[in-house]
Write a protein that binds this DNA or RNA. Structure first.
Length: 252
DNA sequence: CGTTCTACCTGCATGC
DNA sequence: TGCATGCAGGTAGAAC
């Protein structure tokens, strides 16, 4: 499942492959893929057609691509979404949800999503915050230079919930999903149900460091993949699953 | 307000 | 074999 490292691999791949290109044509094959775009698929396509992609940005598991119109193309991969850059001649599988061709007639961008929890939309940036409307409520991730460790510790201790639940709460810290939460807890030797209010500052620092470590390791290896649901923009799976210590193991 | 629960969806694994 | 059921996961929005 795409968590921060996987999404970052996709972001950097798209930064290399689609930034600076002009969208010539957009096709939406499944309405659910643009359900966040309330004005509908045709409007979605109209806002993209003729626009140049200016950058590739990410916060947590959200991706967005600022356009020369001032809007952004927003993408969330959900559980099984992929953004693939492929030759126009490449065959499309049963889960192809949307496709964008470019004016240069080179490779095209495809959104493929088996379980349809992912989605795309076009929306404005919130001027003061410089993030899209849909990302307003998402906390900074642990690799964001502006992530505030001390403020995170304070906020975590104020919560009345279990540690793993808090790590998964994207409004507290973003980018961590089920897999990296389990790995971080294991490496920090902290129990998933530990009440956050009783966490000491050193323990919080430990679990945060563990999360950064495991995600840094995953990033270095191109992301985690278990079943080919996650692949980067060239269609290559990551190999980080060989390094996971606890996720998916019931015998611990 | 903070926290927890549920729907959303598909493919695979399991049970009968 | 075939069918039914259960599970997995991230998020938004409902419910508490």
């Amino acid at each position: 499942m795409p968590e921060l490292p996987e999404v970052e691999v996709v972001r950097s791949g798209l930064e290399r492959h689609v930034v600076g290109r002009v969208i010539a044509d957009v096709e939406v094959f499944h309405a659910r893929a643009v359900r966040r775009h309330l004005a509908g698929a045709e409007h979605f396509a109209a806002l993209l057609t003729g626009r140049e992609i200016r950058a590739a940005c990410r916060r947590g598991k959200y991706l967005w691509f600022p356009l020369d119109s001032g809007d952004v193309l927003l993408a969330h991969l959900g559980m099984s979404g992929q953004l693939l850059v492929l030759p126009p001649s490449a065959p499309g599988g049963p889960h192809l949800r949307a496709r964008m061709r470019f004016a240069d007639e080179g490779s095209e961008l495809r959104f493929v999503d088996q379980r349809t929890f992912g989605g795309l939309d076009v929306e404005p940036l919130v001027p003061a915050l410089n993030v899209p409307e849909s990302v307003r409520h998402i906390a900074r991730d642990p690799f964001d230079p502006a992530f505030d460790d001390a403020a995170f510790a304070t906020a975590l201790r104020r919560r009345r919930t279990g540690l793993k639940r808090a790590l998964l709460d994207q409004t507290l810290v973003s980018g961590i999903g089920n897999i990296y939460a389990d790995e971080a807890l294991w490496r920090a030797r902290l129990h998933w149900a530990r009440p956050t209010a009783t966490m000491t500052r050193p323990q919080i620092a430990r679990v945060l460091a563990a999360a950064r470590e495991v995600m840094t390791g995953a990033l270095a290896q191109g992301g985690t993949s278990f079943d080919a649901l996650y692949v980067d923009v060239d269609g290559e799976s990551g190999y980080f699953d060989r390094s996971l210590e606890v996720y998916g193991r019931r015998d611990l």
